[in-house]
């Protein structure tokens, strides 16, 4: 039994060691408002089909966001084209695709609304649907989601009811 325990611990350590190999090398300056550090290689960007792929994914993403009652109040407005363009630039830079995100930081962007965890997770789900639809491999999806998920700290501002953007309708 002690042998089995050692094997269990060993396999966990291997897992941990393996996961430490991807420590970010922050030599390149990135856009101040990007919200996270960009990836190193460009494999994930390629898996998304480059910028062209991102544009298609964001088109379907936005359709999903407007169709989902949990996210509709935030996106069913005249800013859709602008939001999609910003998302393409932000995702592209996060995936080291040679872009510069010109937009505002996540906190400022979401200051005029109240996003809760339900709305945040609903957006993640719609993004997953859009990535699935465009055959982005699960590994690549999670590499990008790992860059986006911590942004919940700046995006969410309530644990109560969600409130859509004030001036959007």
């Amino acid at each position: 039994m002690k042998l089995k325990l050692m094997m269990a611990i060993l396999s966990m350590s291997v897992g941990l060691g393996f996961s430490q190999t991807g420590i970010a090398n922050e030599t390149m300056a990135h856009s101040a408002n990007l919200g996270n550090t960009p990836m190193e290689g460009t494999e994930t960007f390629q898996a998304f089909g480059g910028k062209e792929g991102l544009v298609k994914i964001m088109d379907d993403f936005m359709i999903g966001l407007v169709a989902d009652p949990r996210t509709k109040p935030f996106f069913d407005n005249e800013k859709q084209t602008f939001i999609k363009a910003m998302l393409v630039e932000q995702m592209c830079e996060l995936m080291n695709g040679g872009c510069k995100y010109p937009g505002r930081d996540m906190k400022t962007t979401h200051a005029s609304m109240k996003v809760n965890r339900e709305a945040f997770n609903a957006l993640v789900e719609q993004f997953q649907f859009a990535m699935d639809k465009h055959n982005v491999p699960f590994n690549a999806q999670n590499k990008l989601l790992a860059k986006l998920a911590p942004m919940y700290r700046d995006v969410e501002s309530t644990t109560g009811d969600a409130v859509p953007p004030a001036a959007s309708k």
Partner: peptide, 9 residues
């Protein structure tokens, strides 16, 4: 959850 590794510990 080590999301970028698809691994939960």
């Amino acid at each position: 959850l080590l999301l970028d590794k698809n691994l939960l510990l």
